[in-house]
Simulated scan of single mutants.
Amino acid sequence: MNKLFPLLIAFFLIVSAVVIGLWFTGGLPGLGQNKGQSSSTLVGVPQIGGPFSLVNHKGERVTDEDYRGKLLLIFFGFVNCPDVCPTEMQTISVAMNELGEQASEVVPLFITVDPKRDTPEAMADFVAAFHPSLVGLTGSEEEIDDVKKKYRVYGEKQEGGDPDYYLVDHTSFTYLMGRDGELITVFSFGVPAEEMAAKIREQL
């Protein structure tokens, strides 16, 4: 089973990438992206998103209901990530600046995939380096596993390294969620901030 698990994870990631690719190119029917319509249901495709209860970087317990009425930009990563996470946080920060006054209608969330190390204090230090509206979210391992499952996120500690200084392999998508908590679209890593801002502006 241990040998099969990485293969199953790889298969799932490939299938997810194909589905998202078809989605962006219009190869999957039934997805509405009109302004004012946050999302539509894709029949037969696993849905992304759902309720969560986590702790923000200020040490406060928050749920998905606390963000109703706002658009959400959600990225899963970890504080000690050397490249992907800070790069995407910078992209999100630039996109938020591009939105100007409209940025008040959007909340960017950075959800850890490494709750063992990413305490509220560690998250606070991390998010302080980026946009002031960025919210870091952590929780127990069970709570993080639950939200990862709901967002179809892969996150796995690399084995064989230092027990305290290790890397975590993880999904690098940014999810744009509607005011009702439903998925609008998914940004691949490397999407320009201007393109991200333009897509968000369509929903404002």
Rank of each mutant, 00 (worst) to 15 (best):
F5G: 01
L7Y: 14
A17C: 10
G21P: 05
K35T: 13
G36K: 08
Q37E: 13
S40N: 03
T41Y: 08
L42Q: 03
I48Y: 05
G50N: 09
G50Y: 09
G50C: 11
V55E: 05
E60I: 04
R61L: 08
D64G: 13
E65D: 15
K70C: 05
F78T: 06
F78E: 11
C81K: 04
C81S: 06
P82E: 03
D83C: 06
C85I: 06
M89W: 05
E98C: 00
L99M: 07
G100H: 04
A103P: 00
E105Q: 15
V106N: 02
V107R: 12
P108I: 06
P108R: 04
T119R: 07
A122W: 06
A124E: 14
A128T: 11
S133C: 01
S133P: 00
S140W: 12
E141D: 14
E141N: 13
K150C: 10
Y151N: 05
E159Y: 00
G160I: 03
G160H: 04
Y165Q: 14
H170Q: 09
H170W: 03
T171G: 10
T174Y: 11
T174I: 14
L176W: 00
G178M: 10
G181S: 10
I184Q: 11
V186M: 11
M196R: 03
I200A: 02
I200S: 03
L204Y: 09
